[in-house]
């Protein structure tokens, strides 16, 4: 026998390290975000279909299944956002002279701050 040994890669590689599992959870949350966007697009379509069609759609959405789906989608979207805001300081480090802004502060400046600002503007616009 001679030669190098190549270790096989298993299909369940994503279970080998806790960090891989966290990565997969982060990626899979995007499906829930995409699913919610489809629901939103359908909602807009029903809105264009007239008052009766929209009311019927809203009535359907008020069922327990849809309510549960929305809660799950909300949790997934929040988790997706938190993980990506946590990654922002790595992808876009901010420097003040030769000092790098601490990661939590950078996440607030470039992630949570703009997010809350935009959310506040939307809430104001809807409720005004």
């Amino acid at each position: 026998m001679s030669g190098r040994y190549h270790r096989p890669h298993g299909w369940a590689w994503f279970l080998e390290r806790p960090g891989y599992i966290r990565f997969m959870v982060r990626e899979l949350t995007s499906f829930f975000v995409a699913g919610y966007l489809i629901v939103l697009l359908v909602t807009l379509g029903r809105l264009g279909g007239g008052e009766a069609a929209f009311a019927e759609w809203l009535n359907a959405l008020s069922g327990p299944g849809w309510m549960l789906a929305h809660v799950v989608a909300l949790i997934a979207a929040v988790w997706h956002s938190i993980t990506w805001f946590g990654a922002v300081p790595q992808a876009m480090p901010m420097y003040l002279g030769e000092k790098k802004l601490p990661a939590p502060l950078a996440a607030v400046v470039m992630g949570y701050g703009p997010w809350l600002t935009v959310t506040a503007v939307i809430v104001w616009w809807v409720l005004r």
Binding site: R17, G19, Y20, F23, A87, P89, Q90, A91, P93
Partner: peptide, 16 residues
């Protein structure tokens, strides 16, 4: 995935 940064013994942050 970010595990490269987690295991780096010199805190290089390759993922970033």
């Amino acid at each position: 995935v970010g595990e490269c940064t987690v295991v780096c013994p010199k805190h290089v942050d390759p993922a970033g």
